[in-house]
Design a protein around this nucleic acid. Sequence first.
DNA 1: GTCTATACGGCGATAGAC
DNA 2: GTCTATCGCCGTATAGAC
Lengths: 222, 222
Amino acid sequence: MVKKKAASAPPQTALADGDAEQRILDAAHKVFIRRGTAGARMQEIADEAGVNKALLHYYFRNKSRLADAIFQRVAGAVFGRIVLVVREQSALDDKVRSIIAIYLEQLSRSPYAPGYILAELNQDPERGRQLVQMISGLRDGVAPSVLIEALQAQIDVSIRAGTIRRISAQQFLTNLVSLCIFPFAAKPLLCAMLGMDDAGFVAFIEERKRTLPEFFLNALRP
Amino acid sequence: MVKKKAASAPPQTALADGDAEQRILDAAHKVFIRRGTAGARMQEIADEAGVNKALLHYYFRNKSRLADAIFQRVAGAVFGRIVLVVREQSALDDKVRSIIAIYLEQLSRSPYAPGYILAELNQDPERGRQLVQMISGLRDGVAPSVLIEALQAQIDVSIRAGTIRRISAQQFLTNLVSLCIFPFAAKPLLCAMLGMDDAGFVAFIEERKRTLPEFFLNALRP
DNA sequence: GTCTATACGGCGATAGAC
DNA sequence: GTCTATCGCCGTATAGAC
């Protein structure tokens, strides 16, 4: 990271909007998600950003640090809002509806983010720790374990009230997140198996927005 | 691929079981799943197999072909049995129970296979086609689209009988597969977020074997 | 800050002995 | 069939001019 741009004439070359650092981040975002960290090439990022390869090292020193920055950015975008919903004061079924709506809406706009995040987590053990730290660092942030306990308490209330059947917070969350994220993480798989093109996939997700909330809430009924 | 070993004294070096080609495949399997195709190194595969790097090229000509062979092998192991279950003559809820049991059992033994397969599919468009072709080529194989249609027909019967609520075969399958595969594809994510180690993950999957069938079947109830 | 030029190492692939 | 040795490219990273 470099200190904020000092007073100086903005370079602003013809085909560039935003300063170089930002353009590099945006370019790296695209390329890392497309190729994965191991498959990404600094040259391709430079081309995409419309700058020279050396400038990437000027701003981020090496590929590994650039990759870290992008992972934080993408993971934050995917998990940030969800964590807020889990923590807010609202009924369990409202949370479910919110989470499904937010996920399907948001991931429709960046369908390859889940695949990228999962691949990163599989190939670099450090990523797990970074993720937990990132979540704990959100505004008013608490550790994930605290979130789980709070959710379990809320679930237990509904169980005792007889409105849902017995389930652990871990399985509850895993089921919910699986149903939301997997279709995007497996987009090429689904497209191949179900014979869909990109437009077909969009329609598929639209159908899912309508049907998934009741599917999930129905599964919870006693 | 090389013609089957002709009659000749088996070399059988001290620390090697099985012929070289098989050991290379097994080693490549491990390394590709661990590192991903882009991250895998021919040298690491050679070391793991206890042979020289040059021998990999003797048997498989280049890295790309070796990667193809491994992808076929892993994908076949993951999807082969499931396809058979979907096609067999049995009640819908029995199929659901079978698929969940088979997946959770089988993936417990190779938990990193899903992550590998998804990463491959995301990064190489060719993989999708290879997968469809592989499935169509199973014994008595038919194209995935035919499987879907048959499943839809079976689902429609249950809907008309009033035993399940309205759902498309696509969403049905996606939901089922999401709930089975995602926890493995996201193993490092879940371990980090839910604070589990490897033993904790095993326990988590055991709990899932008991609870997931009723969760899913419950969701289908009218 | 941004560029050009280049050093350096790693990796896939081949040649050739045994 | 299996090895050793080596080639040549490609990708990261740095040096240094502007």
